[in-house]
Structures are given as C-alpha cells and as structure tokens.
Amino acid sequence: MGRGRRPAGTYWRLDPDLVARRARRLRVERLYSWGLGLLAWSVVGLIAAILGVIVWQGAPAISLEFLTQPPREGMRSGGIYPAIVGTLYLVGFTIAVALPLGVGGAVYLTEYARPGRLTRLIRLAIVNLAGVPSVVYGLFGLGLFVIFLGLGTSILAGSLTLALLILPVVITTAEEAIRAVPRSLREASLALGATRWQTVREVVLPSATPGILTGIILGMARAAGETAPILFTVAAFFLPRLPVSIFDQVMALPYHLFVVSTQIPNMPVELQYGTALVLVGLVTGLNLLAAAVRARYRRARRV
C-alpha cells in the first residue's frame, strides 16, 4: 500500500495490547454512563418521592372545611383559610410592585441603556441581588419598611420586601424575552415613523409578553413560598380574622407550615402535611404553568 513512504508512523500498531485495552475501555465507559444515568435518575426519583409523600400524606387532610375555615383549638384542628388568603394577598401586592419595576428595568436595559459604567453597575446589582440571602431581605424589610418608613408589620411592608426579592427573577426573564424580539420588528416600526417609546409599547412588549409572563409567574411562585423575608415584616402566628387594610398583618402558608411543624406540641401530623400539600400545590402549580407558557411560546416562535 505504499505506507513506507510516510515518515515513521503507525505508533498504535506497535502496541499489541491496544485492541484488548480498547475493548476494556469501552466496557468501563458503558459502566460510567450507566452510573451517571443512575445518579441523575435517583435525583429525579428523590424529587418524585418528596412530592409523592406530600400528596399521599396530605391528601386526607384536604377538605372543604380545611380550605375555608380558620384554625381552631390552638391550631390543632380546623382549617388554614386565613393563611391561604394571606398568601394570596401577599402574592398579589408583590406582583403589583415587582411587575412594573421589573419590566421597566428590563426595557431600560434592552432598549435604552448604552454600554458603559452605569449599565455594568446595574447588571452587577442584579446579579448580587439575586444572591442576597432571603433572611437578609427580611432584615432589610424590617429596617427600611417596618421601622424607618413606619409601615409597621403589615401586608404593605411584607409585599414590598418580597417584591425586591423577586425583582432579579422578573428583570432577568423579561430581559431575555425582550431581547428575543427580532430587531427587524423594531426597525419596521421605527421606519414607519413611530417613536422609540411607541415602538416599545406597541411592538416590543406585545411580542415579549409570553416570556415576561413566564418570569412573572415564576416570581409569584417564589413569593408564595418564601418564609424568611416575611418573618419580621408581615407574618402573624395566629390571626383568624381576615385583613381589612394593607396595614394589617396576615397569616401566610409558609410561615404557618413552619409554626405547625415546629412551634405547636402535639400537632396532628395530618394537618401539617395538609398545609404542606396546599403550599406545594400552589407553588408547583405556578411553576408548571410557567413551564407550559414557555413551551407554548417556544413552539409558536419556531413556526
């Protein structure tokens, strides 16, 4: 075959063990892949088990009474209605603050900000806000809203604290959604004589709505499940009557779960799991909703 003309060469043929070693290596490799698969699937199995236990143990507690009545007998019976309502209030007001602020921030970053020191600073702030521990948000909310601004322990103080906590999530997802809007759409609008703001309002934001919505829903889920930020800003240990103003305290599901699982002796286990199930159902439902919106939006865009 005229191989001899090549300089030196064919080093692998000099090694008689190579064939055997290769076969061994391939077998070992299959084992590694299999092991990694096992690892990944056991993580999934664990997650499934966690959700399974909560549903299995919590379902018997769920009844109309549980969902619509206040706790009774030192919370050892009755329902969790005030905690559900409190959490819904908190999530609602949180979004009312975080939505405009987050989407506004995203619009600024994508449509107006020029690369430079200020933009870098904003991005740095967002990255770090996302990493600030939730209990530090709680401290901050206590210091600024409850005490300094004199809002007291109230829905308003708690919602503002939660809004700041989810701000990075909302900004980041909204920014991603806005960036995905093709530039040609913006240019088409500008070429028709629209101002920059009109282009944002009439073209960019509508196209980015599903993506923004995903971020909002994820933010709601996060706000619904957080405990530490509401500990000192709004959450009430036991408050059977519903709030009448945004300056009232409320019970909240995550804090209630904390209370019934650690602070009440002889608490029926079933009611603890029931509370966990309602909270997990709310949070998981919101996350699945976000995933569904995102999947639909992706499919629509691909066409």
């Binding site: 080093y11 692998w12 090694d15 190579l18 070693r21 290769r22």
Partner: peptide, 10 residues
C-alpha cells in the same frame, strides 16, 4: 495535536 495519539494509547 497530541489529543488523538493520547486517546489511542500513546
């Protein structure tokens, strides 16, 4: 350059 020879056992 050494990547190939190495994975082939050199």
């Amino acid at each position: 350059v050494a990547y190939g020879p190495r994975i082939h056992g050199l």
